[in-house]
Amino acid sequence: MKELICIVCPKGCRLKVDEENGFKVTGNSCPRGAEYGKNEISDPRRTVTSTVRISGSHLKRCPVRTSSPIPKNMMFELMDALNSVELHSPVKRGEVVIENVLGTGSDVIVTRDM
């Protein structure tokens, strides 16, 4: 039995995940919590947010994020990948910066019109 704090929403439910019984989750108050509990044990993932260089705007950094959660152990690799990105204004929210980043199936997208 593993105890976790659910990070799906700000409520922060205290989950118990039974690894021996098909990752059965208790303590959740919604179906997304059950899914999170199961994934957190078998394949933990996080949405990563950061900034990349941008030129031609009044600011020097443009905020970006992964379009979906990526494997937790790839967070730092993703940060390295972002270092080589340089955008040019104008960019639009949702615009893809890196497609299928590191083969995760997730894209890096712009999160602010600049």
Partner: peptide, 11 residues
């Protein structure tokens, strides 16, 4: 928030 303890510190 507890979720921030989990995902910002514990991680």
């Amino acid at each position: 928030l507890s979720r921030n303890i989990a995902q910002c510190l514990n991680d």
